[in-house]
Amino acid sequence: MSTEPVYTPPPGSRACQLRTDRGAFAVVDCPVAPGVRPRGVALMLPGFTGSKEDFTLMQGPLAERGYRTVAVDGRGQHESDGPELDESAYERGELARDVLAQAAALGPLDTPLHLFGHSLGGQIARAAVLLDHTPFRSLTLMASGPAQISDSQQQRVKLLRDALAVMTMAETWEAILAMGPPEEVGGPARGIGGQELLRRRWMGTKPAQLLATGRQLCAEPDRVDELAALPLPFHVLSGASDDTWPVSVLDDMAVRLHAHRTVIPGAEHSPNADQPLPTARATADFWDRVDDAL
């Protein structure tokens, strides 16, 4: 039996339920570090096959910079409940309204609330601010592109959808492991906590959530011009390489958004896992500039 720890939460944080008018969502809530002046709050949305734990290595450094961070499992994702088979519950608009409900549950409107989304989470965050941008001080899109994912990643999602059409989640997981590294054959991307956590969150995630959001990633329209029209500061952050959206595509999106642009050396599609300290530093620097400009 493996002795590898499943997951070590950030210091001072607590795993709890965030109760909203659209139901309860599992979160890791990491407060500002003791003795540090509070600067704001951030709501952090994970990517496809991801979970709230993906932000673990960023949350401590952000707490030291004065930011409370609330990393969330979306509807039907890991430890947040949702329908097993009803894909309509995971339509993009439904997930966007969940984010607005989460924002409303986090506290008074006079507390600066920054929205941060990774990959799929970035596209859900975009949909949320297009419904209502007023709860948010800024939007950071990390490794999250303007439209559908790359052809190679669409093939990865198709592998997953085909498997789930004929197998249970447990059977699909075993098939993925037999074929190779999970992130290369349709399974969860490499993440924090080791394979045991990857399997736990895979088994906790609802099949309908994976099917619906995978379909969305393969058909997402370009909504950058709509987003650019909003009076929000934007930050486009990525690794130096990315096979889900090419870095050149993210560069172009940043120009169209008039966004602050950060490229993290030594990182790929998950800068939060590959280079968490530089990623946290760049994120806090952006939030500081946004708040200092007001």
Rank of each mutant, 00 (worst) to 15 (best):
A165K: 07
G186L: 02
G186F: 12
A170I: 05
R190G: 07
R156A: 08
V166P: 08
L160Q: 00
G194F: 14
T172W: 00
R161T: 11
E174D: 11
R190A: 05
T172D: 05
A175K: 04
V185P: 01
E174R: 15
T168H: 08
R190P: 11
A189R: 12
E171N: 06
M167T: 11
E183Q: 15
Q195R: 14
M169R: 05
G194A: 01
P181R: 09
G180A: 06
V185E: 06
A178G: 06
E196H: 04
L197V: 03
V185T: 05
Q154V: 05
E171L: 12
I176K: 08
L177K: 03
R161G: 03
L177S: 00
L164W: 02
P188M: 07
R200P: 05
E174W: 04
V166F: 09
G193M: 10
Q155W: 13
E184G: 12
G186H: 02
A175N: 07
Q195G: 03
R161C: 05
L198G: 10
M179Y: 11
I176M: 06
T168S: 09
A163C: 13
V185W: 03
W173L: 03
L197Y: 00
M169G: 05
R161W: 09
D162S: 01
A163W: 08
E174G: 09
L198Y: 05
V185Q: 06
A175S: 12
G193W: 00
M179I: 10
A178V: 04
L197P: 04
Q154D: 07
E174I: 01
G193Y: 13
R199I: 10
L177P: 07
L160F: 00
T172G: 11
W173G: 01
Q154C: 10
Q195H: 08
P182N: 01
L177G: 09
L164T: 04
Q155H: 15
M179G: 04
P182M: 03
A189F: 12
R190L: 05
R199Q: 01
R190S: 13
A170Y: 07
P188K: 07
G180V: 02
P188D: 10
D162M: 12
V166Q: 15
L159T: 06
P182T: 12
L164D: 14
Q195F: 02
E196F: 02
I192L: 05
D162T: 02
Q154G: 13
G186R: 13
L160K: 06
R161S: 10
R156M: 02
R199M: 12
A189D: 13
A178I: 02
P181D: 15
L164S: 03
L164N: 08
A178S: 11
L197F: 05
G194K: 04
